[in-house]
Amino acid sequence: MSISHAPPGPSGPDLSPLPKGGLPDQAPTAPDHASLAAELEPIVPASTRRTRVPRWVRRTSGPLLLLALWQLLSSTGVLTPDVLASPGTIARVGRDLVTDGSLPGAMGVSLQRVAVGLVLGTLIGTGLALVSGLFRIGEDLVDASVQMLRTVPFVGLIPLFIIWFGIGETPKIAIITLGVSFPLYLNVYAGIRGVDSQLIEAGESLGLSRWGLVRHVILPGALPGAMTGLRYSLGIAWLALVFAEQINADAGIGFLMVQARDFLRTDVIVVCLIVYAFLGLLADFVVRTLERLLLQWRPTFTGR
């Protein structure tokens, strides 16, 4: 009797040869994702690693290195005291000027002059920019004259101001006012004329009047330019003060510098220059704070 073997069907036993090594002890399991994640270390970009150093440390490292180099050159005799005093000597002289009250009194006089000139220059420059930027006839009457006058060096007008106003406080404040007015005029005028025309059309479609457009669209749009002009104006105000206080002045930081020049005191001159620099830095910090407060509505604002 013959036995016939039926071919294995789909449900038949799997008679394929076993893998080498016999039967497996257990079925393979899925990889443990938790253990794999623990073994992998995140890749940190190089730029992120560099930001671990505080920014204020990086910003102060340059001046500190320059100060250390200055002290080294003074200690080795490369810089003699009659050329430039050492940082230690300047610190001691600055302390003496503060102790006897001469430096605080001079700073008070200089700050008062800058404040008065800045207020007057802001009013004049901003007012002319509004007239010239908002009205076509105002531009025709004002802009050409301002563009002509701003090319005249304001330092060259000091003798003329002395003839006109004498040797008191008026010519000094007039020089500061003149130096402040032109940067504010140019930046406010450019800000007004640079407002997006689509914003003006949108305001008109919403039914805003001309004054409403000026108040809600044009002036806010010109505010960034005004802040830039204010920063430039502050820098020029201190520059104008240096020139104004060295001509027929009887008080102020510039007066201290003139006296130190007559007595060949380079240490006092450097102290006054450092005071000028720190006052300018403080003024710039005030403007940056105003920008953070007034420009937060801008989509591209990045101040913190």
Rank of each mutant, 00 (worst) to 15 (best):
V44R: 08
V116I: 15
G121M: 07
P42N: 04
R261N: 14
R49C: 03
T151Q: 12
V275S: 11
V146D: 01
L40R: 09
T177D: 01
L130D: 03
G166I: 04
I173C: 04
F278Y: 05
I200G: 04
V114R: 01
I167S: 13
G88T: 11
G166Y: 06
H216T: 09
L160W: 04
S74T: 06
I163F: 12
L72E: 06
Q26E: 06
T300Q: 15
D143I: 01
N187L: 06
A277W: 01
G203I: 04
Q147F: 03
A115E: 09
R50D: 11
V142P: 02
A37G: 06
L15C: 08
V44K: 07
S74F: 06
R261S: 14
D267Q: 05
L264Q: 05
A115T: 13
R95G: 13
L186G: 04
A38Y: 06
F255K: 07
M1S: 13
A38N: 13
P19Q: 10
I176P: 00
D250I: 10
T80M: 10
S86C: 12
V53C: 11
A27R: 13
A174H: 01
V188Y: 00
V44M: 09
Y232M: 15
G108Q: 11
S102D: 07
L208N: 05
L120R: 03
L241S: 04
D284T: 08
S61N: 09
V271R: 02
W238N: 00
S205C: 10
P224Y: 06
N187D: 11
P42Y: 03
L36V: 09
T170K: 08
L230E: 02
R50H: 12
